[in-house]
C-alpha cells in the first residue's frame, strides 16, 4: 500500500516523530511504500537543517532524509506553519530579507492543499501527534 504520514510533533520534545519514523521503517519492511510525509503544526521542526542532537541519540532529521533516499518519500512542510516558526528555505529567506535559511532539500515548503491531496490519493494517511 501507499502510505502518507501527517507528523505534528516537534522532534525531541515528544514521541510523535520517533513513533512516525519507527512506523515508517516497519511499513517499508513489510513491503509497503511510504510515499509522502506532511509536517504540520510543531512537526515542521523535523525539517530544521541545523538540528544537532548529541551523537549518541538518533538524528531524526537525517532519518527523514534517508527515507527520501530509500523510497523517494516526499517530505512536505506546511509553509504557513513553517514561516511562523522560523522554518524557511533559501528562497523565502531572501524574499523576507533574512541572511540564513533553516530548511533545505529534500524537505520542501508547500501548502495545506498537499495534505488534503495526500489524504485522498494514498491508500492510508496516518497521523502522529503529540
Amino acid at each position: 500500500m501507499r502510505y502518507a504520514l501527517l507528523v505534528q510533533g516537534s522532534p525531541y520534545s515528544n514521541q510523535a516523530s520517533h513513533s512516525a519514523l519507527r512506523f515508517s521503517h516497519g511499513l517499508i519492511a513489510r513491503g509497503h511504500q511510504l510515499a509522502t510525509v506532511f509536517f504540520y503544526h510543531d512537526g515542521v521542526y523535523n525539517a530544521a537543517r541545523l538540528a544537532l542532537p548529541p551523537q549518541d541519540e538518533p538524528h531524526l532529521v537525517d532519518e527523514w532524509r534517508e527515507l527520501h533516499v530509500r523510497q523517494s518519500t516526499e517530505l512536505l512542510v506546511c509553509i504557513a506553519s513553517g514561516l511562523r516558526r522560523g522554518i524557511v528555505d533559501e528562497q523565502e529567506a531572501s524574499r523576507h530579507g533574512k541572511t540564513g535559511h533553516s530548511l533545505e532539500a529534500p524537505f520542501e515548503l508547500t501548502g495545506l492543499g498537499q495534505l488534503i491531496d495526500a489524504g485522498l490519493t494514498h491508500d492510508r494517511l496516518v497521523t502522529f501527534a503529540p
Binding site: 503544526h41 506553519s81 495545506l112 495534505l115 488534503i116 485522498l120
Partner: peptide, 19 residues
C-alpha cells in the same frame, strides 16, 4: 494553543479545493 486555528485552516483549504 494553535490547534484550533490550524485545524480550521485545513478545513477552509479543503473546502476551497472543492471538498
Amino acid at each position: 494553543s494553535s490547534w484550533l486555528r490550524e485545524g480550521l485552516e485545513v478545513a477552509l483549504v479543503g473546502a476551497a479545493l472543492g471538498q
